[in-house]
Amino acid sequence: MPRGGLTRGRLSALVIPYGWLALFFLAPLALVLKISLSKSIIAQPPYEPAFGASDGLAGWFEKARAFSVAAYRGLGEDPLYLESYLSSLAIAGVSTLFALLIAYPLALAIARSDPRRRSLLIALAVAPFWTSFLIRVYAWIAILKDEGFLNHALMAIGLIDAPLTIYATNVAVVIGIVYSYLPFVVLPIYNSLEKQDAALREAAADLGAGPLATFWKVTLPLSLPGVIAGALLMFIPAVGEFVIPDLLGGSDTIMIGRTMWNDFFENRDWPAASAGAIVLLILLVGPIIWFERRQTKGQGA
């Protein structure tokens, strides 16, 4: 039995998923890149193509010289895009931090529970991921509104006199992102904590380390791969998040996913949205590659 290489059977098995991804993922991405290099005009489709199949090779070269980087220059000059990127990174970063602060103790509490109950608890922690994202975000509107559950409750116990304005602010967006992505963060942290040998903690205690020292010097360092995985799994998609800022944020909440959506559907500036997508991809590819390297290195060790 050949260990590697492609036999004819294997080739035909590979061609189907590869072809599918080429048609519906790779080619579209290439098209985004191409359109980002086109000039915006008001038409359907609302861009003037940079390349056409009919151009021939010479034509392509000719046009390559006349590439329009206008869309990218536009991004640089447009304070909206710059602000979108910065505020997306900031909101995603702050959200990731808060998610870690909630997820770590939760994962630890589950990992230290009775082994017979552990799998049920972790299943319960992850279960909300299976339910509709949209509905879970929607549920927060009723909580965070000026006349929502949170303000009702806080006023009822006399903590505040006037309702807090949370809904339609960046605070609401952060709460929504933390809530929606929490299962993504809990699971990898739990996995790395759960496989830690309890004897390591006993050894640390036996060698004179108190519970706090044991946590800082043994438990936490050993769980860092899970923490990093969870943080990246959340941070990367959160940067490009559209639904949460749109439903929970205010008009001053500017995130790149929403900006691109608006450029696409409302302003119909496809080159600008495409250029925005390409820049976002480049921003996110770095951490993805770094993570992938880490993963493969971890597997090799």
């Binding site: 519906f24 080619a27 489709p45 990367i236 998609p237 490009g240 998040e241 991809l281 996110l284 993805i288």
Partner: peptide
């Protein structure tokens, strides 16, 4: 490598980018 990338990238790439690129290819 390209294949591996094409399998793993859609897991983390923002949906807005995936949607936008699909729309563009269908239009094209």
């Amino acid at each position: 490598g390209v294949f591996v990338g094409a399998i793993y990238a859609p897991l983390v790439i923002p949906e807005v980018i995936l949607g936008l690129s699909l729309l563009l290819i269908f239009v094209a």
